[in-house]
Amino acid sequence: MSLLVNLVLLFFLLVMALAVLKTKHLFAMAMLFGLYSLLVAGLFVVLDAPDVAFTEAAVGTGISTVLMLVTLASIRDGHEATTHGKYRVAPLVICIFMGGLLIFGTHDIAELGDANSAPNREVAARYIEKGQSETGVPNLVTAVLASYRGFDTLGEVTVVLTAGIGVLLLLGKRKKIHVKTSGGGNGK
């Protein structure tokens, strides 16, 4: 059953990816990216990772799609991607090389659910064995993220805050910046 669901999801994922490549209209592209994320979220549910699925559905489908749409709305024109019909060789070579490298790299990833793989034997086994008795939290993902890996999560939150500050500095209100020009008129 889960194989069937996986196949359907992966098939539609492929369709979405090709549709994003084929479409010329940037609004349609943004919406298709949202659908792509929704399908990935579905895949995460099939893989028994509802925590990640939540994040993917809310961030990938919701927030990033909205941000892309808002960005497109703030641009007056250029909503159509234009191609000149010329094909360049160098990007193709780089893409094929990178893709090949990634596929080569997947051979070192442990088989899904393999009990004898290194991460499952060492650290994960410890978490599963002692996690609930040490933290008293039934959701193991929360126990690992918040308690065992608390320092990492602190770093992640700081990154989120830093990203927000960066966007505010770049795009925020520009009232306070006054560049004096010799003519007396303000720039922006």
Binding site: I63, V66, L67, V70, T71, A73, S74, R76, T142, A146, G150, T153, L154, E156, V157, V160, L161, A163, G164, V167, L168, L171, G172, K173
Partner: peptide, 25 residues
Amino acid sequence: IELGVGITVASVMILLFFTFARRVT
């Protein structure tokens, strides 16, 4: 700490939206 994470993430995401949306003429 989960509450802290939630507050920061929610505020930053809304701030991002506001900052982007203000540029829509």
